[in-house]
């Protein structure tokens, strides 16, 4: 039982990172129709920036915020300089994002090197709750993600801007004719999604080592999360992340750990075959005009 609870917490902490990247992917796809393959590299850059800042003596949580802002700025630059020109040609955006992903990998290797990077546990505590040992940093990762998910969810479902965003995801043309500045929302979503990827990268390096190639692995998981829940659906990204995190954690604990990725992708394939719109229903993305 103790091992099960520990595996559950581990699963949730892994799920947290994939949820953060999944929310960004799902929002960007839902609004802009762009399958942004570079989103994984945004996470990697966030992790590398955190490694650099912590190595330079900065407090981890300050570095986390700065990494989020840095990658948010990177997302802003990518949208303004690249993806705004592919808004009506999503396939061009997809191919461009693959190119950007490779460029970011090489840029990071050039600035640092290709070896894996890690930081010491920023908290360094183990909490014993009901006889179960829980690594505090893992619980903090889950808590930070829960706060971000709550802010995102309520922001989207309750606020004026969130309603306009949902309208823009549902039908870009109609939203524009209501006076909603959809292009500005696309930029905002790129910044927010990228900021979450940066925070996800910071949280990830607090748990695991990362390399310049981590992004290309995590992006598959990010898309799996988004597709399982339903592309374009924020709630779906959370559910997808939890499903994948649990499958990961529990298979690592009780199945064949080397098969962890395969289990996750089998779950994704099964869901897409049996329920193509994802568990909570998603969008096909905006119409290309």
């Amino acid at each position: 039982m103790d091992i099960f609870v520990q595996q559950l917490v581990n699963s949730l902490s892994v799920a947290s990172v994939t949820i953060l990247i999944g929310i960004g992917i799902t929002l960007i796809f839902g609004l802009a129709g762009i399958v942004n393959f570079a989103h994984g590299e945004f996470l990697m850059v966030g992790g590398m920036a955190t490694w650099f800042m912590v190595g330079a003596g900065m407090n981890f949580f300050v570095a986390l915020v700065l990494a989020g802002l840095l990658v948010g700025a990177l997302g802003f630059a990518a949208e303004r300089c690249l993806f705004r020109f592919t808004l009506n040609r999503p396939m061009n955006g997809f191919i461009m994002s693959i190119g950007l992903s490779v460029i970011l990998q090489h840029a990071v290797i050039r600035v640092f090197n290709e070896f894996q990077k890690s930081i010491t546990d920023p908290v360094g505590l183990v909490w014993t709750i009901g006889g179960v040992d829980i690594i505090a940093m893992r619980a903090i990762v889950v808590a930070i993600t829960a706060i971000i998910v709550a802010i995102t969810y309520f922001g989207i479902s309750r606020s004026r801007y969130g309603m306009a965003l949902r309208a823009s995801v549902a039908d870009r043309d109609t939203a524009e004719l209501m006076g909603i500045p959809v292009r500005r929302y696309v930029t905002g979503v790129f910044i927010y999604g990228s900021l979450l990827a940066g925070i996800g990268g910071a949280l990830m390096i607090s748990l695991f080592p990362i390399t310049p190639f981590t992004g290309s692995v995590i992006i598959i998981r990010g898309f799996a999360v988004s597709l399982i829940g339903g592309l374009g659906n924020v709630g779906g990204a959370v559910v997808g992340g939890l499903v994948l995190g649990l499958v990961d954690g529990l298979s690592a604990g009780y199945g064949y750990p080397e098969w962890t990725d395969a289990y996750s992708l089998v779950v994704m394939i099964l869901i897409l075959v049996l329920r193509p719109q994802g568990l909570l229903g998603g969008t096909l993305g905006p119409k290309a005009s």
């Binding site: 004026r160 309603m163 549902a170 004719l177 006076g179 909603i180």
Partner: peptide, 27 residues
């Protein structure tokens, strides 16, 4: 200066109230 489409201008997944509220917030 506002127009409608031949298809009804609405978001099918939202409630009637939400549909109008989104437009009203803009207007």
């Amino acid at each position: 200066l506002v127009r409608t489409f031949q298809q009804a201008m609405s978001f099918p997944g939202l409630t009637v109230d939400e549909n109008v509220r989104i437009a009203w917030e803009q207007g």
